[in-house]
Structure formats: C-alpha cells, structure tokens
Write a protein that binds this DNA or RNA. Structure first.
Ligand SMILES: [Mn+2]
Ligand SMILES: [Mn+2]
Ligand SMILES: [Mn+2]
Ligand SMILES: [Mn+2]
Lengths: 134, 134
DNA sequence: CATTTCATGTAGCGTATGCTACACTTTCGA
DNA sequence: TCGAAAGTGTAGCATACGCTACATGAAATG
C-alpha cells in the first residue's frame, strides 16, 4: 500500500495500524499496572481469544513493535513504546475533547476508541487549541 | 457478534459496517450525478479493482442494502437509501464540525472519512450544538 | 454485422482478524 | 513431587477485503 492517493486508501492503511496502536497502548497500560503483560491479560482486555492475541503479537513482533519469547511475557521495543505514547496522547486528548464538548462519558469513551485512529495531527492541534481556550 | 460488552467489540462491529456505509453513500452520490451506478464507477471512486467492488456488492445485496442484476447497474434498496442518508448526515456534519474547529480542509476531509463511522448519535448532537452556538 | 473495446464475472491467491479444538508447557497446591 | 489447573501454542476453519489473470458478456465502431 503505497499510493494513498485518496481518502479511502488512507482509511484502509489506517485500519491496518489500528490494531497495532490499540495493542501497544494496552500493553503499556498493563505494564503500568502489573509487572508483566501476558497473552491472557491482552485477551481479557481486548475481549478476544488468546489465539487471536498470539497471532497479532507475532505480527507486531515481526514489525518490531513488541518482544516475546514462547510462553513468556510481552514487552515493548523502543519503537513500540514510541507508538504507544503517541497513541495514548491522541487517545487521551480526543477523549478530553469529546468530554469538553459535552459528550456523555460512556459514549465518549466508546467513540474515542474508534475515532482516535483517524485523527490527524492537524485536527489534534485544533482540539488542543479548543481545550486551551475553553 | 452480539455481546458488544466493551469498546473494542464495538469498534470491530463498526469496521464490519464501515465499508457498507461508504459504499451506499458512494452509490447515492453517483446516482445523484448520473442516471446509473456501475461497478466501474464504484471501482474508480473507491480506488479498488472492479473485483473488490463486485464482491462487496454481493455482500451488500445479501444484506438487503443494494440490488444488482449480473452486468446490470447498482441501485439502493429502501434500507440502503436509509443507511446512505444517515451516513451522509454524519459525514457532512462531522466535516462541517471539523472545519468550524479550524481544521484545514484537506485534513478535515481525510479525517472525516475514517472518523465518521465511529461517531455516536450523542457526539453528533454535541457537534450540532457547537455549530449552532458558534 | 463483424470485430474490437470496454465492462463484468470468476478462479485463485494473500493478509488481517475472528473462532474452536486440541496439544503442550508452566504453575500451583495437596 | 506429582497431578490438576492455568496458560500458551498450533491446526484448521470462517469472513472481509485487497490483488492479478483470465473468461465472458455488452457496447461501440468501422
Ligand atoms: Mn487507544
Ligand atoms: Mn482504538
Ligand atoms: Mn461517508
Ligand atoms: Mn468513510
């Protein structure tokens, strides 16, 4: 996928990385709460089977985002940490923005989870400005 | 897919219908500009091969959103029209909102294409209120 | 009206993300 | 320490959406 000539292609590449973003963010979350992140932890959090988690972790490992030994815990590579932090910033900023806009928390939380992956840096900056001038 | 117990499950079901939403909206668009909507028209607009369009149209037909005879044009069922109009409303409102927020048009257009599918009615209403009080 | 061109369909492949069933490893507790 | 429980891996299947290559139907053109 290299052209990106229209908005639909853009959306498709977004989809390809949405999962990665959610997972590295979740891994960082879990590692902030406990000493290790296991397949089981991710399966519970994402509400998918451990099989799905295992396969996605393989892909993330092949992309250099996570490290994992068989039967071992999951950790983030520097690249993975970077993605996690960028994702987290977007996630939190978008959520704060929606709440400031008056969206009920339940809806805001749900909307954010999907919207976050499609919010450009430009839009993010506008949301920051809105929050600052509110 | 029936539980929807957390935000991730919600996001996944969103993905399942994103394509449908984009397609019915595109079909309605095309039918507003010319007398018939063909596979080729959709392939051009979505920038995918005609094969992909054909298969997606089969799915949409099986879901009762579109009607199509072999080698014939595509039309929307009443359900499809309904989805198209709801999608269009969300699409346009979100775009207008982002523009009002100060997002450059190019970014706003691109972001909207992905974000639209994850914006709840609650959030939409808040955006409407923002636009009214601006 | 025959032929070329264009549009559409189908076969077959690839990736990503779901699942269940079963095998294997690790951990825990009696 | 040894068997059960819990966790993880793998096989194999499903759906969705990409693609190329090739076959076939429809339309245009001389
Ligand atoms: Mn997130
Ligand atoms: Mn998310
Ligand atoms: Mn749309
Ligand atoms: Mn869209």
């Amino acid at each position: 996928m290299s052209s990106l000539s229209n908005q639909f292609a853009k959306t498709r590449t977004d989809h390809a990385s949405e999962t990665a973003e959610d997972y590295v963010e979740a891994i960082e979350d879990i590692l902030g709460q406990q000493d290790s992140c296991r397949v089981k932890d991710l399966a519970q959090r994402m509400e998918v089977s451990h099989v799905t988690v295992t396969r996605i972790l393989q892909r993330l490992a092949s992309e250099g985002l996570v490290t994992k030994e068989p039967y071992g815990p999951v950790s983030l590579t520097p690249t993975g940490k970077q993605m996690a932090q960028a994702s987290r910033r977007r996630h939190e900023l978008l959520l704060e923005f929606l709440l400031a806009l008056g969206v009920p928390e339940t809806d805001a939380i749900r909307d954010t989870e999907g919207m976050e992956h499609h919010v450009s840096e430009a839009t993010l900056r506008c949301m920051e400005t809105f929050l600052a001038n509110r």
